[in-house]
């Protein structure tokens, strides 16, 4: 009977973060890019909770509280921006949003 180690949790967290990062890089749809950003945030919270559990402190867990709150606010504002963008340009593909170019 062995319990999973801190290293295992950090590996999962790093994997999740890398997957989110790759998603941000390779996807063209702004909504999916945004979902991948959420994935990266959740990966960081997993690392925080794991550190907190193995060190016997509550601070990491309390910090995850704050991250959840900020993430909720961020999603609301981000989606509102995406909707406003869609109203203006009729597209949310990253490649076509290049009006700042040149």
């Amino acid at each position: 009977m062995i319990a999973p180690t801190l290293h295992a949790y950090l590996t999962i967290s790093a994997l999740l973060f890398a997957l989110g990062f790759l998603g941000v890089l390779i996807r063209r749809n702004t909504l999916v890019v945004f979902m991948c950003l959420e994935l990266m945030l959740v990966a960081s919270t997993l690392a925080l909770v794991a550190f907190s559990r193995f060190n016997g402190t509550m601070d990491g867990n309390v910090f995850v509280f704050f991250i959840l709150t900020v993430a909720a606010a961020e999603v609301a504002v981000g989606l509102a921006i995406i909707v406003a963008l869609f109203r203006q340009r009729r597209t949310i593909q990253v490649d076509e949003l290049n009006s700042l170019k040149n």
């Binding site: 959740v42 907190s52 559990r53």
Partner: peptide
């Protein structure tokens, strides 16, 4: 699994 029951609940609720 990390004994953070409240955070698990909040994650499901909020996310």
């Amino acid at each position: 699994a990390l004994n953070a029951y409240l955070l698990a609940f909040l994650l499901l609720l909020v996310y």
